[in-house]
Amino acid sequence: MSTAAPDTFNGPIIDAEDLWRTYEMGAEEIHALRGVTFKIDKGEYVAVMGPSGSGKSTLMNLIGCLDTPTSGTYVLRGKVVSEMDDDELAAIRNREIGFVFQTFNLLPRASALHNVELPLVYAGIPRDERIEKARQALEMVDLGDRVTHKPNELSGGQRQRVAVARALVMNPSILLADEPTGNLDTATGQDIMALFDRLKEAGHTIILVTHEREIADHAQRTIHIRDGQIESDERRTS
Protein backbone atom coordinates (compact mmCIF):
# COMPACT_ATOMS: atom_id res chain seq x y z
CA MET A 1 0.00 0.00 0.00
CA SER A 2 1.33 3.39 -0.98
CA THR A 3 1.48 6.23 1.46
CA ALA A 4 0.49 9.78 0.63
CA ALA A 5 3.20 12.06 -0.66
CA PRO A 6 5.50 13.50 1.98
CA ASP A 7 4.21 16.99 2.34
CA THR A 8 5.86 20.07 3.73
CA PHE A 9 2.56 21.94 3.63
CA ASN A 10 1.22 22.42 7.14
CA GLY A 11 -2.13 24.20 6.82
CA PRO A 12 -5.48 22.60 6.07
CA ILE A 13 -5.77 20.79 2.71
CA ILE A 14 -9.08 22.54 2.09
CA ASP A 15 -10.05 25.96 3.40
CA ALA A 16 -13.48 26.99 2.09
CA GLU A 17 -14.83 30.37 3.15
CA ASP A 18 -18.43 31.44 2.56
CA LEU A 19 -18.92 29.59 -0.74
CA TRP A 20 -21.91 30.66 -2.83
CA ARG A 21 -22.87 29.10 -6.12
CA THR A 22 -25.72 30.69 -8.05
CA TYR A 23 -27.22 29.41 -11.30
CA GLU A 24 -29.26 31.58 -13.56
CA MET A 25 -32.29 29.85 -15.01
CA GLY A 26 -33.78 32.44 -17.30
CA ALA A 27 -34.73 35.38 -15.16
CA GLU A 28 -34.63 33.31 -11.98
CA GLU A 29 -31.59 32.87 -9.79
CA ILE A 30 -31.12 29.56 -8.04
CA HIS A 31 -28.78 29.47 -5.08
CA ALA A 32 -27.35 25.98 -4.98
CA LEU A 33 -24.94 26.90 -2.21
CA ARG A 34 -25.59 29.68 0.28
CA GLY A 35 -22.47 30.46 2.23
CA VAL A 36 -20.64 27.23 3.03
CA THR A 37 -17.56 27.40 5.26
CA PHE A 38 -15.42 24.44 6.34
CA LYS A 39 -11.85 23.16 6.64
CA ILE A 40 -10.45 19.73 5.98
CA ASP A 41 -7.07 18.68 7.30
CA LYS A 42 -4.56 16.37 5.80
CA GLY A 43 -5.31 12.69 6.35
CA GLU A 44 -8.98 13.23 7.21
CA TYR A 45 -11.70 10.90 5.96
CA VAL A 46 -14.84 13.00 5.47
CA ALA A 47 -18.29 12.03 4.28
CA VAL A 48 -20.52 14.64 2.67
CA MET A 49 -24.19 13.72 3.02
CA GLY A 50 -27.42 15.26 1.97
CA PRO A 51 -30.63 14.55 0.08
CA SER A 52 -30.77 15.18 -3.65
CA GLY A 53 -31.13 18.85 -4.45
CA SER A 54 -29.34 19.81 -1.25
CA GLY A 55 -26.36 21.30 -3.07
CA LYS A 56 -24.20 18.28 -2.33
CA SER A 57 -23.22 17.77 -6.00
CA THR A 58 -22.50 21.47 -6.45
CA LEU A 59 -20.20 21.38 -3.44
CA MET A 60 -18.48 18.30 -4.83
CA ASN A 61 -17.86 20.10 -8.13
CA LEU A 62 -16.31 23.01 -6.26
CA ILE A 63 -14.13 20.78 -4.09
CA GLY A 64 -13.08 18.88 -7.23
CA CYS A 65 -12.14 22.13 -9.02
CA LEU A 66 -14.54 21.28 -11.83
CA ASP A 67 -16.34 24.55 -11.13
CA THR A 68 -15.64 27.81 -9.34
CA PRO A 69 -17.84 29.52 -6.73
CA THR A 70 -19.91 32.57 -7.60
CA SER A 71 -18.53 34.18 -4.48
CA GLY A 72 -16.38 33.16 -1.53
CA THR A 73 -12.87 31.75 -1.52
CA TYR A 74 -11.78 28.19 -1.96
CA VAL A 75 -8.16 27.48 -1.02
CA LEU A 76 -6.75 24.06 -1.86
CA ARG A 77 -3.37 23.32 -0.30
CA GLY A 78 -2.62 27.03 -0.06
CA LYS A 79 -3.68 27.85 -3.59
CA VAL A 80 -6.65 30.10 -4.25
CA VAL A 81 -8.67 27.97 -6.63
CA SER A 82 -11.65 30.30 -6.80
CA GLU A 83 -9.72 32.75 -8.97
CA MET A 84 -8.22 30.30 -11.43
CA ASP A 85 -8.93 30.06 -15.16
CA ASP A 86 -9.86 26.88 -17.04
CA ASP A 87 -6.36 25.65 -17.78
CA GLU A 88 -5.10 26.33 -14.24
CA LEU A 89 -8.10 24.40 -12.91
CA ALA A 90 -7.26 21.52 -15.25
CA ALA A 91 -3.70 21.44 -13.93
CA ILE A 92 -4.95 21.51 -10.31
CA ARG A 93 -7.40 18.65 -10.98
CA ASN A 94 -4.61 16.71 -12.59
CA ARG A 95 -2.20 17.06 -9.65
CA GLU A 96 -4.35 17.51 -6.55
CA ILE A 97 -7.62 15.66 -7.10
CA GLY A 98 -8.26 11.97 -7.62
CA PHE A 99 -11.82 11.38 -8.80
CA VAL A 100 -13.80 8.20 -8.24
CA PHE A 101 -17.23 8.32 -9.89
CA GLN A 102 -20.41 6.38 -9.28
CA THR A 103 -20.44 5.14 -12.90
CA PHE A 104 -16.66 4.49 -12.92
CA ASN A 105 -16.23 6.66 -16.04
CA LEU A 106 -13.52 4.52 -17.58
CA LEU A 107 -12.78 4.90 -21.30
CA PRO A 108 -14.53 1.83 -22.72
CA ARG A 109 -12.08 1.23 -25.58
CA ALA A 110 -8.91 1.57 -23.53
CA SER A 111 -7.24 -1.14 -21.46
CA ALA A 112 -7.12 -0.90 -17.66
CA LEU A 113 -3.49 0.17 -17.94
CA HIS A 114 -4.22 2.92 -20.43
CA ASN A 115 -7.11 4.20 -18.34
CA VAL A 116 -4.80 4.52 -15.36
CA GLU A 117 -2.17 6.16 -17.57
CA LEU A 118 -4.46 9.02 -18.61
CA PRO A 119 -3.74 11.47 -15.75
CA LEU A 120 -0.02 10.85 -16.31
CA VAL A 121 -0.48 11.61 -20.01
CA TYR A 122 -1.95 15.00 -19.18
CA ALA A 123 0.83 15.60 -16.66
CA GLY A 124 3.28 15.21 -19.54
CA ILE A 125 5.11 12.23 -18.05
CA PRO A 126 7.15 10.14 -20.52
CA ARG A 127 5.65 6.89 -21.71
CA ASP A 128 7.96 4.40 -19.97
CA GLU A 129 7.48 6.10 -16.63
CA ARG A 130 3.73 6.27 -17.21
CA ILE A 131 3.45 2.56 -17.82
CA GLU A 132 5.57 1.80 -14.78
CA LYS A 133 3.49 4.02 -12.48
CA ALA A 134 0.16 2.84 -13.90
CA ARG A 135 1.20 -0.77 -13.40
CA GLN A 136 2.17 -0.06 -9.78
CA ALA A 137 -1.16 1.65 -9.14
CA LEU A 138 -3.05 -1.33 -10.56
CA GLU A 139 -1.01 -3.72 -8.42
CA MET A 140 -1.91 -1.64 -5.39
CA VAL A 141 -5.61 -2.35 -5.99
CA ASP A 142 -4.83 -6.04 -6.65
CA LEU A 143 -5.38 -5.83 -10.41
CA GLY A 144 -1.79 -6.47 -11.46
CA ASP A 145 -3.00 -9.43 -13.55
CA ARG A 146 -5.71 -7.46 -15.37
CA VAL A 147 -3.71 -4.63 -16.95
CA THR A 148 -4.57 -5.47 -20.57
CA HIS A 149 -8.28 -6.04 -19.91
CA LYS A 150 -10.83 -3.61 -21.29
CA PRO A 151 -13.52 -2.32 -18.88
CA ASN A 152 -16.17 -4.61 -20.42
CA GLU A 153 -13.96 -7.58 -19.57
CA LEU A 154 -13.92 -6.64 -15.88
CA SER A 155 -16.53 -6.99 -13.10
CA GLY A 156 -18.12 -3.91 -11.55
CA GLY A 157 -15.87 -4.10 -8.50
CA GLN A 158 -12.79 -4.50 -10.66
CA ARG A 159 -13.81 -1.50 -12.75
CA GLN A 160 -14.19 0.62 -9.67
CA ARG A 161 -10.77 -0.53 -8.47
CA VAL A 162 -9.30 0.53 -11.84
CA ALA A 163 -10.94 3.91 -11.24
CA VAL A 164 -9.37 4.09 -7.76
CA ALA A 165 -5.97 3.23 -9.24
CA ARG A 166 -6.47 6.00 -11.79
CA ALA A 167 -7.43 8.43 -9.01
CA LEU A 168 -4.32 7.60 -6.99
CA VAL A 169 -1.72 7.35 -9.75
CA MET A 170 -0.79 11.04 -9.56
CA ASN A 171 -0.59 10.88 -5.76
CA PRO A 172 -3.20 13.65 -5.31
CA SER A 173 -3.89 15.71 -2.19
CA ILE A 174 -7.44 14.44 -1.98
CA LEU A 175 -9.35 11.43 -3.15
CA LEU A 176 -12.83 12.64 -4.09
CA ALA A 177 -15.34 9.81 -4.38
CA ASP A 178 -18.89 10.46 -5.57
CA GLU A 179 -21.21 7.61 -4.52
CA PRO A 180 -18.45 5.08 -5.25
CA THR A 181 -20.62 2.11 -4.29
CA GLY A 182 -23.82 3.33 -5.92
CA ASN A 183 -23.52 0.97 -8.89
CA LEU A 184 -22.18 -2.03 -6.96
CA ASP A 185 -23.84 -4.85 -5.04
CA THR A 186 -23.46 -4.82 -1.26
CA ALA A 187 -20.56 -7.27 -1.04
CA THR A 188 -18.53 -5.56 -3.75
CA GLY A 189 -19.37 -2.18 -2.23
CA GLN A 190 -17.93 -3.40 1.07
CA ASP A 191 -14.73 -4.43 -0.70
CA ILE A 192 -14.36 -0.93 -2.13
CA MET A 193 -15.03 0.63 1.26
CA ALA A 194 -12.41 -1.65 2.80
CA LEU A 195 -9.99 -0.41 0.15
CA PHE A 196 -10.83 3.18 1.17
CA ASP A 197 -10.22 2.32 4.80
CA ARG A 198 -6.79 1.02 3.87
CA LEU A 199 -6.05 4.18 1.89
CA LYS A 200 -7.05 6.28 4.91
CA GLU A 201 -4.66 4.23 7.06
CA ALA A 202 -1.92 4.93 4.51
CA GLY A 203 -2.41 8.65 5.05
CA HIS A 204 -4.62 9.68 2.12
CA THR A 205 -7.18 12.45 2.52
CA ILE A 206 -10.56 11.13 1.41
CA ILE A 207 -13.80 12.97 0.74
CA LEU A 208 -16.77 10.73 0.18
CA VAL A 209 -20.05 12.02 -1.19
CA THR A 210 -22.93 9.67 -0.39
CA HIS A 211 -26.51 9.48 0.78
CA GLU A 212 -26.08 6.14 2.54
CA ARG A 213 -25.60 6.21 6.28
CA GLU A 214 -23.70 2.89 6.30
CA ILE A 215 -21.19 4.13 3.76
CA ALA A 216 -20.76 7.45 5.53
CA ASP A 217 -20.02 5.58 8.75
CA HIS A 218 -16.65 4.56 7.35
CA ALA A 219 -15.57 8.20 7.64
CA GLN A 220 -14.49 9.85 10.88
CA ARG A 221 -16.31 13.05 10.05
CA THR A 222 -19.65 13.71 8.38
CA ILE A 223 -20.81 16.99 6.90
CA HIS A 224 -24.56 17.21 6.27
CA ILE A 225 -25.78 19.57 3.58
CA ARG A 226 -29.35 20.80 3.32
CA ASP A 227 -30.73 23.63 1.18
CA GLY A 228 -27.30 24.78 0.20
CA GLN A 229 -25.97 25.15 3.71
CA ILE A 230 -24.09 23.00 6.21
CA GLU A 231 -26.66 21.55 8.53
CA SER A 232 -24.19 19.73 10.75
CA ASP A 233 -20.49 18.84 10.87
CA GLU A 234 -19.82 15.91 13.22
CA ARG A 235 -16.56 14.26 14.18
CA ARG A 236 -16.54 10.82 15.65
CA THR A 237 -13.79 9.86 17.97
CA SER A 238 -13.16 6.26 17.20
Partner: peptide, 16 residues
Protein backbone atom coordinates in the same frame (compact mmCIF):
# COMPACT_ATOMS: atom_id res chain seq x y z
CA UNK B 1 -19.12 14.20 -24.46
CA UNK B 2 -18.83 12.09 -21.32
CA UNK B 3 -15.36 10.92 -22.32
CA UNK B 4 -14.37 14.56 -22.80
CA UNK B 5 -15.74 15.29 -19.31
CA UNK B 6 -13.70 12.46 -17.83
CA UNK B 7 -10.56 13.59 -19.62
CA UNK B 8 -11.09 17.14 -18.34
CA UNK B 9 -11.65 15.86 -14.80
CA UNK B 10 -8.35 13.99 -15.07
CA UNK B 11 -6.53 17.16 -16.06
CA UNK B 12 -6.94 17.60 -19.82
CA UNK B 13 -6.63 21.26 -20.75
CA UNK B 14 -8.62 22.87 -23.58
CA UNK B 15 -5.57 22.53 -25.83
CA UNK B 16 -5.31 18.82 -25.09
Amino acid sequence: IQEIGVRKALGARRGD
